[in-house]
Amino acid sequence: MTKRILPVLAGLALVAALAVALSSPPDVLQGDFVRILYIHVANAWLAFLAFGVTAAASIGWLVRKKPGYDRVAAASAEIGVLFTAVTLFTGMIWGKPIWGTFWDWGDARMASTALMFFVYLGYLALRRATPDRQARARRSAILGVIAVVQVPLVYFSVVLWRTLHQGLTIRPDSVQMEPAMLVALLVNVGAFSLLYLALLTARVRLARLEEAVEAHERAPAGRAVTAPRLETGQ
């Protein structure tokens, strides 16, 4: 049931988010370019959430050793990388007309986000390189816990360093944003959250199927024949 409802809901929410973003008022300084930020900021927040889920599931695996945690950690990291790529791309196309450049090396937020992207690309590469399921889960769980340190660094980079990026717009005590724009942003965050959930459940289900296929392919050879363990063969 969930596997059909969630994608439909996510699709409808994304259409609604697009409509709200396009009908929101233009910014006094940025004009219509402000609309890119609704996607940019929503994707950045969801990337943080995705990597946070990866870390939590990694801890879950290290404590309980249940394969479900590993599936969630891996799926969330993949989606996090996708959202980070969208964040970087939309940031660059917004930066050219507003800041006059696609990329600014002096901006700590941009540089740290790109680094976070590469760290999680490394996480995915480590998973691909480890054929044994148990070893893959352990190694990536350890890296998943270490790598999450990047998330607060990226988030607070605008506070810690002087950068082109503006400071935190939404704080617990104050919101420095026009109400109509805030609504557009929050609707987009909600829509992308649903997309994240839809992608996560689909990817976890796919991972379970992949494991079933893998187990099925191994079966005909019988227990007398086992594949060589490439990972520890030195």
Partner: peptide, 26 residues
């Protein structure tokens, strides 16, 4: 040392370990 331990025994270790370590070394 950490990256080496994470990738010990993997065939792609030579390329993978520096890839894991370099962004964290920034």
């Amino acid at each position: 040392t950490l990256a080496g331990d994470l990738t010990v025994g993997l065939r792609t270790r030579t390329a993978l370990a520096p890839m894991l370590a370099a962004p964290l070394a920034v």
